[in-house]
Amino acid sequence: MTNDILIKVEELTRYYGVQTGSRPAVDNINFEVRRGEVLGFLGPNGAGKSTTMRMITGNLSPSHGRITINGIDILDQPKKAKADIGFLPELPPLYRELTVDEYLQFCARLNRISRDKQTNAIGTAKERCGLSDVGKRLIANLSKGYQQRVGIAQAIIHSPAVVVLDEPTVGLDPIQIREIRHLIRELSNEHSVILSTHILPEVQATCDRVQIINQGRLVLSDTISGLIQRMQTSSLRLRTKNRTDNNILLAIEGVVDVSVIDENCVQIKHKPEINPAAAIAKITVEQGWELLELTPDRRSLEEIFVDITTAEQTADEQVEKTGNKKTEAAA
């Protein structure tokens, strides 16, 4: 992974509609993507994921802000910047009346791949997306999964510096999803990839960095390892064959609280700076409780996601409420 920045987004804002009072669909977003990085874009429906992606790829122009692709401003030099982008929108942009080969050839020409390199480029794109056997078939007759692959092949045919994929695994079966994830990881060797999804494990499986967007604002931007850290909480789960004595457990250094989940299982909360796992294991053996399971409790990505997105909303509501009270008081 090198340090050159391929995508730089500064103060990106986009309004829909003409009323100046309305809330922007994308509100002052800043981020960067480096070469070889896979950035996951997460968010509930209507959060502004697709709008952001369409702006990065030049399909929409921002109300404010700047987007630079590989050092080229997309508003100043759209042609040059777009040559470095491959985009798969939510609905793959396919001409259904063409065969896969014809379609990819058109895409190759559209992206100004020189005539002698076209066959090669089409072959490579087909191979990478597992389309080698369906080249002669009409796109209209392909299954949804294959159509999605044709869409991805279209996005990578000119080996762009930046690949933007909007929900690339929608409508695929589990095996295809694994293949596509593998493909995305492979792409990240030479390209930067931005992908949006609302499937959380997908982010864990493919991305280096995660950004959660909610109501047009960036609410979280973290690396995967940072995210995993957020998932760890300061509690352990202990399962034993015999009943434990909670007072003995409470006496261990660092343990704050012990709560009984069922007859053979307790949840032990501890101070975040001290991990009492080793001590607990030792005492369990000494007391003859017979250790069955000792695991750190983890919050799932779902829980974090829900926490972050709902916390934002309640904060907003509170602001609104206090605002209302103030106006009431003023009245």
């Binding site: 369409r54 759209p78 942009p93 559209l110």
Partner: peptide, 14 residues
């Protein structure tokens, strides 16, 4: 209507 316009819009053409 079939949203293929974005193919042309994101290609390096004016």
């Amino acid at each position: 209507r079939s949203q293929t316009l974005s193919l042309l819009m994101s290609a390096p053409i004016s």
